[in-house]
Design a protein around this nucleic acid. Sequence first.
DNA 1: CAGTATCCCAATGGATACTG
DNA 2: CAGTATCCATTGGGATACTG
Lengths: 119, 119
Amino acid sequence: MAGMELDDEGRRLLDQLFDKWSLLVLHALCDRSRRFSELRQHLPAVTPKSLTTCLRRLERNGVVERVVLSTEPVAIEYRISRLGRSLESPLRAMLGWVVDHLDTVEAARTQYDERRADI
Amino acid sequence: MAGMELDDEGRRLLDQLFDKWSLLVLHALCDRSRRFSELRQHLPAVTPKSLTTCLRRLERNGVVERVVLSTEPVAIEYRISRLGRSLESPLRAMLGWVVDHLDTVEAARTQYDERRADI
DNA sequence: CAGTATCCCAATGGATACTG
DNA sequence: CAGTATCCATTGGGATACTG
């Protein structure tokens, strides 16, 4: 652990990977490629603007690809890139932790808040 | 992967774990307990206000503990909790990915920007 | 369908100074 | 040392409406 140092660039990349929607979009795309509207349905609270911003950023960082399918009419789908796929395992670990420990965290919060209220 | 769904609470927890400084603070504390001023030195760009906010939130979520040492004069140190320790492995995976792939990401960005500039 | 365009608000977080 | 207090600039992101 000691040898792994993150410079400022690294921290900014973390910011971009972990903004409000990115992890969830990535998670959805690891499962399978999806279209814009499918992502919107999958992430109910996201607005088109936020989703666009998020997708562009992930695309720019090379973890997601925007593919124009030459169907008729053309369809556009987003898929995970090879680079993005390499993120799947760390991502799963992280999301898995959240799912597994959400209850514990909630309990900790309650306890913390009560302690503060006592004072 | 399919079975792991994140509700809104989960997404908000992600937000709190992955805000601008939290991951780096956690990383630093996984290494060893540190005092406020040590953390400031370790994370050069953080202001005291931001660090406080971050620590309080991590404490509230139960992953960090604020310990008052009964030395003379008293010292305060922050240490990782048991719950926080369980985050270490996912955290390492995530930060490791960033360190390992930062160059690739940079290249992808350059490529993306150039393609856009062409148009 | 896959976005873009506007408007707007709340919150993040930086700079700085101060305190028990 | 370990913060708190203020002020302020930026921006992320929601709501909504519109478009090729």
